[in-house]
């Protein structure tokens, strides 16, 4: 563990903080294009965040400390996860802090507090958002963990750095279990980051409002932190997917050149993933809340089939 790897760690967290809004900007731009609209600048998310940070906080009268604590906590989990998931390099000093299961736990912590914050003010919208969010999470999390378990069983480890290395050293390419797990992971990512099937990140419409409903009462820097964290969450899920299923490009050793290459690879992959995300999002219709079980059931089925085919076929 050399000092340089600490430096990479910092670079990686900075990448996360810096590029997450850009990625969202890219996704929004693509979405506008697919819908035949002219888009805002790709840098618009930065400007939104900057504006929110400058604004004063307006707080509801009966907001408790839970409400004020939540934005910081959600932000913390995102940044912490950024120090653990190999975005640029696998040789991170903080990587042993958490394996994939712990990461799921970290995201669950953030969600737990967001849901509490939604209930704190005592409005009908907040409660609705919290209730729906926790319902979706309780179906999405088993599917997520099943997908992750399949990956861990196939690579004999739950630590992400190790998974990356096993994939690097392995000669086999076609593994049905991983393919299934990958599809399950995509479905879960779309759900967990609030893009489909019910949630719509762009509206304040009662029917499609889950994440938005919980954070309805936030303003100023609190809202900025939450927005930034949710941008990072999408970024991190994409990175987690890349590390578990297609890590090629992530630096194994820490010298400046490989890390630079890793950075370029990452940007390329982000561009492609963004396009894929928008294709799925535009192609799939939104669902009624109670059709959600089918969507997540499909994800769970994929993950389970992945695990079964690991045992049966491999």
């Amino acid at each position: 563990m050399n000092p340089f790897s600490f430096f990479i760690e910092i670079v990686q967290v900075a990448t996360l903080l810096g590029l997450a809004p850009l990625f969202i900007g890219w996704v929004r731009m693509l979405k506008c294009w697919t819908q035949g609209r002219s888009s805002a600048s790709i840098l618009q998310p930065y400007m939104d965040l900057a504006k929110l940070f400058r604004k004063n906080v307006v707080l509801a009268e009966n907001a408790s400390w839970v409400f004020r604590f939540t934005p910081y906590l959600v932000f913390c989990t995102a940044v912490l996860a950024g120090g653990i998931i190999p975005i640029l390099s696998v040789d991170l000093p903080f990587a042993p802090t958490a394996d994939v299961i712990v990461l799921v736990g970290l995201f669950a912590t953030a969600r737990f507090f967001t849901a509490l914050a939604g209930m704190d003010i005592g409005t009908a919208f907040g409660g609705m958002g919290s209730s729906r969010e926790m319902t979706i999470a309780s179906l999405a999390e088993p599917a997520m963990l099943m997908s992750i378990f399949t990956v861990s069983l196939a690579n004999k480890s739950t630590s992400i750095a190790q998974i990356v290395q096993v994939i690097y050293s392995g000669q086999s390419v076609l593994r049905p279990s991983l393919a299934f797990a990958f599809f399950a992971f995509i479905l879960i990512t779309l759900t967990e980051t609030g893009r489909i099937p019910v949630d719509n990140p762009a509206t304040h419409l009662e029917l499609t409002m889950i994440h938005e409903a919980m954070i309805l009462e936030y303003s100023g820097r609190h809202l900025a932190l939450i927005e930034w964290a949710s941008m990072m969450k999408l970024f991190l899920f994409v990175m987690l997917g890349i590390a578990c299923f297609a890590p090629w490009g992530i630096a194994e050793s820490v010298d400046i050149v490989t890390v630079l290459y890793a950075f370029i690879f990452m940007v390329l992959k982000l561009g492609i993933v963004g396009a894929g995300l928008i294709l799925i999002e535009t192609g799939l219709a939104k669902m009624r809340l109670f059709r959600l079980t089918e969507f997540l059931g499909a994800a769970f089925l994929m993950a389970t089939l992945g695990m079964l085919s690991f045992f049966i076929l491999e």
Binding site: R175, A298, L305
Partner: peptide, 23 residues
């Protein structure tokens, strides 16, 4: 080796289509 892998991969896809038809 590769052929066997492709074979099991296709088997997995056949299974998947079976489930997809079920749904």
């Amino acid at each position: 080796q590769v052929a066997a892998q492709i074979n099991s991969f296709l088997a997995a896809i056949v299974l998947l289509t079976a489930f997809a038809m079920l749904m």
